[in-house]
Design a protein around this nucleic acid. Structure first.
Lengths: 125, 125
DNA sequence: TCTTGACCTAGAGTTGCTCCAACACCCTAT
DNA sequence: ATAGGGTGTTGGAGCAACTCTAGGTCAAGA
């Protein structure tokens, strides 16, 4: 499949895929006779993994490190686990922070809603 | 209090506070006789609000719009509610996406763990 | 006295995209 | 046949939101 479709399925834009390719994050990029990139099913799976790492806030340098481990073969699986588990942990913390911020946001909205209600009461008097 | 302390309490770095000030996001910045910024209790509250908006992914342009509403006075409260509720909704979607990614990540880790276990069994034979 | 540390400024550098110009190719409609 | 539209290609510019650096002021402590 072409880059547009691969992008739609994986959640990365064609621009991002090309950018990742330059950075060495794409495991396999073949070209057809016109010079257009094309991707197989499991290439798209990898793109989806990249989208997942990006979406969970992994820095590109670390995604690069992970990619290199994948390229080196099966014996790096334990290292990959370590890397992903470290990432998972940070994610956990980010989520906790997000929870606090969301609560803060909700409180602000509640405060504003109260304010409006009080104003309306004043006017009604 | 000075910018360092205000930063620590609000969760923004002094650099970020100065950067926000240039962008017009700081409601009040007074200086002492040495030209150093100082902040009162409720200035820090506002900085905390900015940290919250940033931490929940609001674009700076929108934070600027919100700041302008706050500066215009109480009659903009309904608009502020609309803005924050729109933001809240996007946040909800981002969180749903994050959940999917986290699940994906966990599945990958589980897959790798399985892989290692299977390898160990093979060796043991 | 001197050095450590916190502040100041303007501006450069970084990350991770995202968009643009300029071109190639193929399909369809006129 | 050719004009338009949609897809792809490249290199490089532009952008958001910081983050860091250089070069400076000032006050306090060893």
């Amino acid at each position: 499949m072409n880059i547009g479709e691969a992008g739609k399925l994986s959640g990365l834009s064609p621009d991002t895929i090309r950018f990742y390719e330059k950075r060495g994050l794409i495991l396999s990029t073949k070209r057809d006779e016109k010079g257009h990139r094309y991707y197989a099913e499991n290439d798209v799976g990898w793109l989806g993994m990249l989208a997942c790492l990006r979406g969970t806030g992994m820095p590109l340098a670390e995604t690069e490190a992970f990619t290199r481990l994948v390229q080196e073969g099966d014996h790096t699986v334990p290292e990959r686990i370590k890397l992903l588990e470290g990432h998972r942990e940070r994610l956990e913390q980010k989520r906790a922070e997000l929870d606090r911020f969301e609560k803060h946001l909700d409180e602000k909205i509640a405060y504003y809603n109260d304010f409006v209600k009080t104003e309306e009461k004043k006017k009604a008097q």
